[in-house]
Design a protein around this nucleic acid. Sequence first.
RNA 1: GCGCCCGUAGCUCAGUAGGAUAGAGCGUCGGUCUCCGGAACCGAAGGUCGGGGGUUCAAGUCCCCCCGGGCGCGCCA
Length: 583
Amino acid sequence: MRGAYITLERTLRERVGPVEVERTQNPKFGDFTTNAPFKLARERRQPPPKIAQEMAESVEPHLKGRFSLSVAGGYINFRMEDEALGGWTDEVARGRWESLFPKSGVRILVEFISANPTGPLNVANARAGAVGDSIVRILKLLGYDAESEYYVNDAGMQIVNLGLSILHFIAPDKFPMPEDGYRGDYVRELAREFVSEAAPLLAKGPTQLSLTEAEEFGRKVAHRILQLQKETLRRYGIHYDNFVHESWIRKSEYPERTYAILRRMNLLYFQDGHGEISHEVPPSLSDLYDGGTYRYPGWALYFKSTLYGDDKDRVVVRSNGQPTYFFWDAAYHLYKLLRGYEYIYDIFGPDHHGYIPRMKAVMRAFMEATGREATYDVIIAGQVNLYEEGRRVRMSKRAGRIYTLDDLMDEVGKDAVRFFMLLRAPQTELNFDLTLAKKAVKENPVFYTQYAHARIRSLLDYAEANGAEPQPMGAPLGEERDVAALVQYLPYYLIKTVPLNLREGVFASMGLPSTSGTTGQFSPNLLVDYLIELAHTYHRFYQNNRIVGAPRQGQRLTLSEAVMHTVKLGLNALGVEAPDRMD
RNA sequence: GCGCCCGUAGCUCAGUAGGAUAGAGCGUCGGUCUCCGGAACCGAAGGUCGGGGGUUCAAGUCCCCCCGGGCGCGCCA
């Protein structure tokens, strides 16, 4: 059972080709509409009304009994026939949204949050997490084989610093706090857990301690912090398919392969502090070193990312021989590419958009070199501002006032956090009203939407206790039609949530022609808006119409059930629960 | 200075390959309960879509310039 929208899309694509169908803005134009005749007018050298007329005639016989058509200027408007609408509603009421879209087998990887394992997850991570996880959930509903991934930066100087910070708190006199140390309360608390493990290092003292030893110790601490982060993630309702550790990437074959690819494509060169350039780059990464020492001190190794659209070339190995974060990240992305995904998405925080061009550059280089094609794109999760009692909650790391994701969930609950984080388009700035999120009133859209579900659950119990049973819908009457029609928009909004190329993929997986759209953004906020509207329409219907005891009680129970399933499916796609009661 | 995001009702925001009279929620004002959850519902007022040019049969949407706000511009991660 695929519902009205899919039926319509499918028929139009089969009969007249790939045209775009939209929900009408005004109900007087029917339920769905297309402006395809306008778009074809130039190419066909015919007036839009004429094209509309022809299209309508060719498609009408195939929609008989399900949609009535009307041509208005260059538009074709479609109205769901009431009997068909009733039939679709019956299906939904039986929970038949399950098989919405066929499995396409197309593999998609979405990486998100990937917070440094040096502290608790924060509010920005909460946004990226809500966006990333709901995108994965929605892609799965659309039939894609989507995976979520978390990259753990458990290597490098920050991990050394983490280890040294812990040592400092255990033995403040012996170990000074490093320059870029971690001072939060959580570090102080963690230090207590590591007292015995730190003993051998403490005995050595700061001067005898090697960088490697400090990093190894820091990694143990990082993995402990990761455990705590995973705890938070579970509470937040996010399940990851994969965790990939930077420490593993560093030891893997991918750094050498990255180097080899970039070198083979002539994308590497040395530059010293005076701007001298040398293109004599040794054949392998390990050739840069002799034992443990760098053979080109004073010379940094650059990647010609400008050849792929970046605004400057990027250092991959510093003049002291240390590869940069970017280099390891490139190696990690090579690993992603070689795993064979057709779409690879990264979700970055708002402070990382300057990083996008170089990632896209290196990915393009990889694709050229390996012949593997994938769509790589970055989604920015915008900044979050917290407000309480109308005032901005200032977060300052220095003052120790960091608002963690756990704090947020303690404050307003997991469902409210997730819902509010998805209220706006991913890349935009978001104002999070803590006071509102806590309220159990209609002004709070989470409660409002969940309440629709709980209200129906309660109604169905009442109906059962009073011997009222659902009946086939038939043709919906009066306000019933508004509700039934809105239920049918679910697939439309699910598809609207993903970029155009992925929408096309959904149609392609149904064997339908593609328009090869390539632009567009992920917009789970559209699904959020839809659910609020559906809840609103149902609340109105419920308010104005008696259900149990009314002449059409059986039909109205069916309609209510259909709404219940739809709200639940939608909320779950956002990672939000659909509770049976609101107490 | 350069780059990215943003500017739409008093507030927070939709408007996604340009398309029908620019929508919603909150707030404000005024209403609704003999009844299944009032944690709800209905109605009204409220707009030069930051400003100016341009492209188009058609611009909130595309292009150029300007104004305002946020973020980013390391051999940090």
